[in-house]
């Protein structure tokens, strides 16, 4: 079972205590954007076979949203971090680069 640490309350939570919220760091394109931008915002997803940044909610716990970096192929969890950011923390990215040379995810690499 997937276990993630909630960065707010510190609990090591089983996935049954959490709710997956899909891809993280998506930039919203609303009224006034082009069709292409809106399509990208609504449906364009990284869908990597490898390291992925995701949103999770500690739904049966403190209730807070947070982010996680997880490998979709090996299920390795690199870490979790606060939702109050639009980029993954630099130390987490460094750790992923170290373990996965050539890693790339949207504008982060």
């Amino acid at each position: 079972m997937l276990i993630l640490q909630c960065p707010y309350c510190g609990v090591m939570a089983d996935e049954t205590e959490l709710h997956a919220g899909g891809e993280a760091h998506i930039k919203r394109f609303g009224p006034g954007s082009s069709d292409e931008e809106f399509e990208g915002y609504m449906f364009g997803r990284e869908n990597p076979k490898g390291v992925h940044f995701e949103r999770w909610r500690h739904v049966n716990g403190c209730g807070k949203w947070f982010h996680a970096a997880r490998d979709t192929n090996t299920m390795e969890v690199f870490g979790t971090y606060t939702a109050q950011t639009s980029t993954p923390p630099e130390d987490l990215l460094a750790q992923i680069r170290d373990k996965r040379p050539g890693f790339k995810w949207r504008e982060f690499s």
């Binding site: 997937l2 996935e15 997956a20 869908n47 992925h52 995701e54 997880r70 979709t72 192929n73 090996t74």
Partner: peptide
Amino acid sequence: GYNGFTQRGSFH
């Protein structure tokens, strides 16, 4: 409920 390539799935 989340992306994955493990031909296994969540046990619960």
